[in-house]
Nucleic acid binder design. Structure first.
Lengths: 113, 113
DNA sequence: TAGCTTGTACGATAGATGTCGAACGAGAGG
DNA sequence: CCTCTCGTTCGACATCTATCGTACAAGCTA
C-alpha cells in the first residue's frame, strides 16, 4: 500500500472551478516558487529534490503546498518520491492566458542585467 | 506652492524599466487593491475617497502606496485631492498582456456565484 | 534486520503585512 | 480667523509568511 493511502492525509488538489486568482497571484509572487514553476515549464515531471533552489527541504515542502493548494502544480507519490507536474491545461482552462503572461513577464525580467 | 513640493516627500513612481513582476503580482493578490484597479479600469481618474472599498482612510493610503511603488498606478496631487490613474500603457510596455490576463481572470471569477 | 534515501510534520522565530485610531497638514470657503 | 474636507503619517497590533532544525515515517536495498 503506497504511502499516500496509509497514514498521511491525501494530497489536496482543488478543481479548476475552485481556483482563486488571488491565491494564484500570491503563490506566484515568491522567487523560490517562481523558480519551481519555471523549472517545471522546461521539464514535464520532477522529483522534489531536483529543483535548483537553495532552501531547506522543509521550506521546499512549504512552497510546494502553497503552489498545490492554489492549483498550480499536481503532486503524486511513488515510493519515497513525490513527483510534481505543472497544471498548465487546468490553469489555461480556468484563467486563459494568465500563466503564459506571468511567465513571459518573469522570463523577460530575468533576461535583464 | 503645492503640497507635494512643501513638506511631503515627492511621490515615488518607478520607471517601467524598474518594474518587478513579483512586486506586481504581490500587489495584485489583495482583494482591496484588486477592487481599486478594477475601478480604475472603468473610470480614467478618481480621487482617493471615491473608491468602493470598505477600509479606513489610512489603510487605503497603504494600499495606494503598494500599487504605486509596484508601478500599477500613478498619483498626482491637486489641492487637497490626490488623483489616481492606472499605468496601463507602461505595464503593457514592460509586461505585455499581463494586466489584461490578470484582470480578465479576476472578472471571470467575480462573475461566478 | 539494518541502513540509506526521500520527503513530511512540527515547533520556533524573525520579518512582512493588513488593519485601525489618533493626530496632523494643507487647501478651500465661510 | 475658524472650520471643514481630504488624505497622510505614526504607532500599535494581530495575523500571515518564509525560514530553519529536529524528529520522524515510508520505501528501498544490501
Amino acid at each position: 500500500m503506497p504511502r499516500s493511502q496509509r497514514r498521511r492525509a491525501a494530497l489536496f488538489h482543488p478543481d479548476p472551478d475552485q481556483f482563486d486568482v488571488l491565491d494564484v497571484l500570491h503563490a506566484l509572487s515568491d522567487p523560490t516558487r517562481m523558480t519551481i514553476v519555471r523549472t517545471l515549464r522546461a521539464s514535464p515531471e520532477r522529483a522534489c529534490g531536483t529543483f535548483p533552489v537553495d532552501v531547506a527541504p522543509s521550506t521546499l515542502t512549504h512552497h510546494f503546498r502553497v503552489l498545490r493548494e492554489a492549483g498550480i502544480i499536481r503532486q503524486r507519490e511513488e515510493g519515497t518520491r513525490r513527483w510534481t507536474t505543472l497544471r498548465e491545461s487546468d490553469l489555461q482552462e480556468r484563467f486563459p492566458g494568465l500563466l503564459e503572461a506571468v511567465m513571459s513577464a518573469y522570463e523577460e525580467q530575468s533576461g535583464r542585467a
